[in-house]
Amino acid sequence: MKKNPNPNGKIKGQPNAVDVYIGKQIRTARTFKGMSQGELGRLMGLTFQQIQKYEQGANRVSGARIVDLCRVLDEVPDYFLSDIPKEVMEQSPGYITFKENVEPINIEKPDFNRRETMELVKAYYNLPFHVRHSMLLTIKAAGKTQAEVA
């Protein structure tokens, strides 16, 4: 027998797929910064257990916590909230479907096991925030332009 979803978009006993995705983003940003869960928790005034729950998607991350995470991890909110795969959003009971005439672009997922990918990501995170943010906006704009040409 299937368990009924509750109002916060979770099936009883299972985390919401979007919360799990955001948790993975938190874990990735923390790992690239070389921080432990305990260190991140200390900087945010939380326990490592709370960070662990966020990273597993067991606890939902509020908007205020996202702002705190951005400050501590030197990220922008888009890092945690944009580019959520459609398959993940569709697993969330609160998902609002795309308009019929909008088809998301299917982008191949990066292989983080490749040395080249890790070197690129590490080099990116060694840049000052304002340079990273400008580069990110430029790359996203270039991607949109490429999609329009295709």
Score class of each variant (00 low, 15 high):
residue 2 K to G: 04
residue 3 K to Y: 06
residue 4 N to H: 05
residue 7 P to Y: 01
residue 8 N to P: 07
residue 11 I to Q: 00
residue 12 K to S: 12
residue 15 P to G: 04
residue 16 N to Y: 03
residue 18 V to M: 05
residue 18 V to T: 11
residue 18 V to I: 13
residue 21 Y to Q: 07
residue 21 Y to T: 05
residue 21 Y to I: 08
residue 22 I to D: 00
residue 22 I to Q: 01
residue 22 I to M: 07
residue 23 G to D: 01
residue 23 G to A: 03
residue 24 K to P: 00
residue 24 K to E: 08
residue 25 Q to F: 06
residue 28 T to K: 10
residue 28 T to R: 15
residue 29 A to H: 13
residue 30 R to N: 06
residue 31 T to P: 04
residue 31 T to R: 13
residue 33 K to L: 00
residue 34 G to Q: 01
residue 34 G to W: 07
residue 34 G to K: 13
residue 35 M to E: 03
residue 35 M to W: 10
residue 36 S to G: 12
residue 38 G to R: 06
residue 38 G to Q: 08
residue 42 R to L: 15
residue 43 L to H: 15
residue 43 L to Y: 12
residue 45 G to S: 03
residue 48 F to M: 01
residue 49 Q to M: 14
residue 52 Q to W: 09
residue 53 K to L: 11
residue 53 K to Y: 09
residue 54 Y to K: 09
residue 55 E to F: 10
residue 56 Q to C: 08
residue 57 G to R: 04
residue 57 G to E: 08
residue 59 N to R: 10
residue 59 N to Y: 12
residue 61 V to Y: 01
residue 61 V to G: 01
residue 62 S to W: 08
residue 62 S to F: 06
residue 63 G to T: 10
residue 63 G to Y: 07
residue 64 A to P: 05
residue 64 A to V: 11
residue 65 R to E: 00
residue 65 R to A: 02
residue 66 I to L: 09
residue 67 V to N: 01
residue 67 V to G: 02
residue 68 D to K: 12
residue 68 D to C: 02
residue 70 C to R: 05
residue 72 V to F: 04
residue 72 V to Q: 03
residue 73 L to M: 06
residue 77 P to Y: 00
residue 77 P to L: 00
residue 77 P to C: 04
residue 77 P to A: 03
residue 78 D to K: 05
residue 79 Y to I: 05
residue 80 F to S: 04
residue 82 S to H: 10
residue 83 D to L: 11
residue 84 I to N: 00
residue 85 P to M: 07
residue 85 P to Q: 09
residue 87 E to N: 13
residue 88 V to F: 06
residue 88 V to G: 09
residue 88 V to R: 04
residue 91 Q to S: 09
residue 92 S to A: 10
residue 92 S to K: 03
residue 92 S to D: 11
residue 94 G to V: 03
residue 94 G to T: 11
residue 96 I to L: 11
residue 97 T to K: 11
residue 102 V to I: 15
residue 105 I to P: 02
residue 111 D to K: 15
residue 112 F to L: 15
residue 113 N to C: 09
residue 114 R to F: 05
residue 117 T to C: 15
residue 119 E to C: 09
residue 120 L to T: 15
residue 122 K to E: 07
residue 122 K to I: 12
residue 125 Y to P: 01
residue 127 L to R: 06
residue 127 L to Q: 10
residue 128 P to M: 01
residue 128 P to A: 12
residue 131 V to P: 00
residue 131 V to Q: 14
residue 131 V to G: 00
residue 132 R to V: 02
residue 132 R to E: 00
residue 132 R to M: 10
residue 133 H to D: 03
residue 133 H to Q: 13
residue 133 H to N: 12
residue 136 L to R: 14
residue 137 L to F: 06
residue 137 L to W: 10
residue 138 T to Y: 06
residue 138 T to A: 11
residue 140 K to S: 05
residue 141 A to F: 07
residue 141 A to K: 13
residue 141 A to P: 02
residue 141 A to Y: 07
residue 143 G to N: 13
residue 143 G to T: 06
